[in-house]
Design a protein around this nucleic acid. Structure first.
Lengths: 314, 314
DNA sequence: CTGTTAGCGCTTTCAG
DNA sequence: CTGAAAGCGCTAACAG
């Protein structure tokens, strides 16, 4: 906020031409080290700051990636965003973040704004029913998270593996009566895929499935609990930590401290409050890393459309 | 991502001069409605998108505000950011968001990057021990949240009122033994100010204070609980929901369901899990709104340095 | 009201 | 290796 120094000022100050300064700025190797040193010194002393706007306009790249997430206060998404930020910032990019609020319309509006801003690429968090057509036209300049597509790069969570991990944990303990509380299958990923994973695990283990699905809220899970609790029930696998919270709460009321509960999300709060629980980490943070790395590689042409699946862990 | 249409193409296509197109773009009133209509039509048909980079460079304003928060996964901060986003997006600005991770150094780095990007203004979430000097030089182009300064606009939370609200709630119920669990007073706002508010409330009500402070974590509060629980204790006021969670958990174990607990943060999870609790809402979302509105007014010169205090509510 | 003319600050040929 | 010159796409006087 001091002055408005331009590249020309620096050129004069260091007794070289505009272009030489520019070369220093762009790390052009064909500058005599001596000259470079001198110019860099002047830049440092003067506190000169090259204008990104001008660079963006000239060079075409604004060094910005757009991130569209559904909600800022989604714990899973903001963990992933932290991962993204870490990577892109490292690579000299900045992020402009927008909330889709689960609306395809808003998503597209945001996308339009981002294009207008000349962003280098975008990372979009998918949601159930989101329309990918607009994103697909971005081809290698986009990566989507948590949703299926062939036509564009994606980083998905291993919904099957997540549930399998929880199931196996219980199965290995010799438990045979494991119920499930999930969300409505109209939600492709958290709903349908995780439910199916549960069913398959049951089949493979030869145990009788017992499950209920509803909304993604504590209250919903709380209410559903009674329907999946039998006298013999030994554990309940939940599609998310939020759900697990509701289930554990209800179990506590029912005095069923014998029933173990698992959730998804790696919330430390869950096991803090309810001792008899654990949470599977779908790897949100790492997925953020992965998607950002993928995008950056694609932008530099080192990589084409790819599909990654984030491994879950306990 | 279709073509690279420029203002000149639009000019030719609609048979007018560059500047007329520019005037249409900038909503300059001195354009014949007829002409404007024609140009707008062409713009729409061609799918032309003006380059923000060029506009930013020329006009000086990139229509971007920078937001520096401490952590993306801080519930209070991301509620506030949602509020900010709503307002600035409405006003045609976009946001580039960065995490300071409670480091003054990172904050300053981010600030530098934002300046380089020619952002119109910044909103910074303060943290204990953050250094405001760099921000102060931004004068009317900055607003800080949750921290004290005279030299720059700020939106603060009513730390005193927050605790007072909780205390009064209990006092009105005739309770006389109200303890407090907070965070270390080395933290100015959440620590010191809230603790002082508690002490003052006690004094005014003529009751004996009983409190402990520690870290801002469930565990810390959990461990501190025993120290503030006496046989006669009727309620415990906590400096945050996180703390309240730890306290309520410990009380549950102690079988003290008679003790009411209050937190700060409006987390629905708290009262869902522990019935005998309630939470004060410091007004995070509204503070976001307020700070964004303030910044925008300042940027347009309609407002000078101002200090706002967000009212809390139950 | 509208076209013409300058640049904004920077990168990039193109000649030295 | 380095300077001069030509724009990038747009806005803002300046003349019509």
């Amino acid at each position: 906020m001091t002055q408005k120094l331009t590249i020309l000022d620096i050129a004069k100050l260091s007794g070289v031409g505009k272009s030489t300064v520019s070369r220093v700025l762009t790390n052009d190797p064909k500058v005599k080290p001596e000259t470079r040193e001198k110019v860099e010194q002047v830049i440092r002393d003067s506190g000169y700051v090259p204008s990104k706007s001008a660079q963006a306009m000239r060079g075409g790249s604004a060094k910005v990636v757009g991130i569209i997430l559904s909600r800022l206060d989604s714990p899973s998404e903001n963990k992933a965003v932290s991962g993204i930020l870490e990577v892109i910032y490292q690579a000299g990019y900045d992020a402009v973040i927008m909330e889709s609020q689960f609306s395809t319309e808003k998503t597209n509006e945001h996308l339009a704004v981002l294009q207008k801003r000349n962003v280098d690429g975008v990372i979009v968090f998918g949601f159930s029913g989101c329309d990918l057509t607009a994103i697909e036209s971005l081809k290698h300049k986009a990566v989507v998270i948590a949703v299926d597509t062939d036509r564009i790069s994606s980083v998905g969570y291993d919904n099957h593996g997540i549930i399998e991990l929880a199931m196996n944990h219980f199965l290995h303990q010799g438990k045979r009566f494991v119920s499930y509380v999930g969300v409505d299958p109209s939600d492709k990923t958290t709903g349908l895929m995780r439910l199916n994973a549960y069913k398959e695990c049951c089949q493979q283990a030869g145990i009788e499935p017992c499950y209920q699905t509803g909304q993604l809220s504590h209250e919903s899970a709380y209410q559903l609990t009674d329907d999946v609790v039998q006298p013999e029930t030994q554990a309940i696998v939940c599609a998310s930590d939020t759900l697990a919270m509701g289930v554990a709460k209800r179990l506590q009321e029912l005095g069923r401290s014998d029933i173990q509960v698992s959730g998804v999300g790696a919330t430390d709060l869950l096991s803090f409050i309810f001792p008899n629980t654990f949470s599977i980490d779908p790897g949100y943070f790492k997925a953020g890393h992965a998607s950002a790395n993928l995008l950056i590689k694609q932008l530099s042409g080192q990589q084409t459309i790819t599909h990654l699946t984030q491994q879950a862990s306990l």
